[in-house]
Design a binder for these strands. Structure first.
Length: 271
DNA sequence: CACGGATCCTGATGGC
DNA sequence: TGCCATCAGGATCCGT
């Protein structure tokens, strides 16, 4: 579910409300991808300074230390004073003076990790290899094209990898490549400067529009206030195999790349 | 080293 | 309240 827009929409939906709150208790459910890294009781009494985002991670700056939250494939966050009783897939809950923060994650690919302020290594291990933020000033065309030229991997896989640019997941990778007119199977190093420019613009465009629309999620995304972004942004190619291209009516192709589904229009997108 | 594949886990869906 | 195979928005680890 969560690519950059969904994570950012989640952040925006509770960052202001939780800022300044004091942690009152922490409850864990079943194990997530990684252990929390401290005793739940250790977080009690600290307060939440603010909530940032890096790639697909939510970063809660505490009065001492940092809490990293990743939503994995199926995670969603709720924050409120009157949450329903915890269900079987609620695997992290932090009660605060401003309300309860809860992670629901059926597949448990997500994680909540505490990084002590004095231990730089933990945050570094999770965040250290991440590429640039696509909606930030550091995402510039010259560096982007230079990075593409160094990589032999196909462009779809490179976008998903997150080492060049973060936040582009499986849906938006297909969508951005469609907008850029580039076939997902194209080796990154063979993309010319003008085509890299189109891709650069397409990534920013599709992600920023999705944030504005509240997260385009084509399935079950909802933000921390329970508001759904369902189908608010129309997919051009994602999950449309066999259906007519919205631009040229040619049938959309569905293929697999690295165990992930990819969709493209063979007429509108060139190798 | 860069790359491709297997892997973690639960739930939904569709064919039989 | 049928069974089985396949697929799902992520990211790490491991072998080559």
């Amino acid at each position: 579910m969560p690519e950059l827009p969904e994570v950012e929409v989640t952040r925006l939906s509770f960052a202001d409300r939780i800022a300044g709150a004091t942690v009152q208790s922490v409850r864990l459910g079943q194990p997530l991808r990684w252990p929390l890294g401290c005793l739940p009781a250790q977080l009690v009494g600290r307060y939440v300074l603010r909530v940032r985002r890096r790639g697909k991670y939510l970063l809660l700056d505490l009065s001492e230390g940092l809490l990293l939250i990743h939503l994995g494939m199926s995670g969603s966050v709720s924050f409120g004073r009157q949450l329903p009783l915890p269900g079987k897939h609620d695997h992290f809950e932090m009660d605060t003076s401003h309300g309860a923060l809860r992670l629901n994650d059926p597949r448990r690919f997500g994680a909540v990790v505490y990084a002590p302020a004095e231990d730089h290594a933990i945050a570094q291990k999770l965040l250290g290899r991440l590429g640039v933020e696509p909606l930030g000033d550091d995402f510039d065309l010259v560096n982007f094209h230079a990075a593409l030229r160094q990589r032999k991997t196909v462009i779809k896989q490179l976008l998903l990898g997150g080492e060049v640019v973060v936040g582009v997941g499986n849906i938006y990778a297909s969508e951005a490549l469609f907008l850029a007119g580039i076939r997902p199977t194209t080796p990154a190093c063979r993309i010319s400067r003008p085509r890299a420019a189109r891709l650069h613009a397409a990534i920013r465009d599709v992600l920023s529009r999705a944030v504005t629309k509240g997260g385009s999620t084509l399935r079950d995304f909802s933000n921390a206030q329970g508001e759904s972004g369902y189908f608010q942004l129309e997919a051009m190619v994602y999950d449309r195999a066999g259906l007519p291209c919205r631009l040229c009516s040619a049938p959309i192709k569905g293929i697999r790349q690295g165990q992930r589904s990819t969709f493209y229009c063979a007429h509108c997108q060139k190798p």
